[in-house]
């Protein structure tokens, strides 16, 4: 049984969130998104000429996304470089953002997105996706909507929102992790992965609780972007 969460949060409560845009001065757009102890920094460059040339599409632009965990982001140092997990997450971020950005407005061009995880405590792909979408908005790319992404899941018999690494590792309780990405105002799902075992009814409940969390994140994203263009934001 899992009646009380390890960090005493309510079951549908998010961790503490910090969001900020314009953190990388040399990039066209950039954002930092921190949820609990997970922190992602995203930088967007472009649209620019496609390199290498064979990735070019004549009717729309392409997104080149690179997700990377910095060696010191976890307690056991991880090997620097692009591994299979990084490849997978880059791919899912690319797919999700292709649904959000009007790529057909930039034929034969490339948008480069670099996401770095400086601290990891579960939910890095959701934090990366949220940061990347904020950075794209900051770069002035035309988008259908911002992406708000959060992990939800099931531990024991409880449906929980925004799992930490400790909770993800409760294998005896049957911890299930479901990262979900939304276009909140369109109510569309752009990212849905599942790690664990869950019944069909429970999955529906998990997606519903994820939507509640995503709506809250959506408000925070919008506020961060507004702050960039108002008087108070000057740093």
């Amino acid at each position: 049984m899992y009646n009380e969460r390890l960090d005493k949060r309510a079951f549908d409560e998010l961790r503490k969130i910090e969001a900020e845009v314009g953190v990388v001065p040399n990039a066209n757009g950039s954002a930092r998104f921190k949820i609990g102890n997970t922190e992602a920094i995203a930088a967007v460059y472009g649209p620019q000429e496609v390199k290498p040339k064979h990735f070019e599409k004549s009717d729309r632009g392409v997104i080149m996304c690179k997700y990377d965990m910095i060696p010191f982001s976890v307690s056991d140092r991880i090997k620097p470089g692009f591994d299979r997990r990084d490849m997978e997450i880059s791919e899912v971020i690319t797919n999700a953002l292709s649904r959000a950005i009007f790529l057909e407005e930039f034929p034969k061009s490339m948008i480069t997105i670099n996401v770095y995880i400086t601290q990891a405590d579960a939910g890095t792909r959701c934090a990366s996706l949220t940061a990347a979408s904020m950075a794209c908005a900051d770069a002035g790319l035309p988008m259908r909507d911002l992406i708000a992404s959060v992990a939800a899941g099931k531990i024991g018999d409880s449906i929980v929102l925004d799992l930490t690494k400790e909770e993800e590792d409760l294998h005896e309780e049957g911890a299930t992790d479901v990262p979900i990405g939304f276009l909140p105002s369109k109510n569309e799902v752009v990212l849905l992965q599942l790690d664990g075992k869950v019944s069909r009814e429970d999955l529906k409940k998990i997606i519903a609780i994820g939507k509640v969390g995503a709506d809250k994140i959506y408000q925070i994203e919008k506020e961060a972007l507004k702050r960039r263009f108002s008087n108070e934001s000057k740093s």
């Binding site: 066209n28 757009g29 649209p47 002035g140 790319l141 960039r228 263009f229």
Partner: peptide, 8 residues
């Protein structure tokens, strides 16, 4: 709608 930053 026009963005607050843009690409030329």
């Amino acid at each position: 709608m026009s963005p607050l930053t843009s690409v030329y």
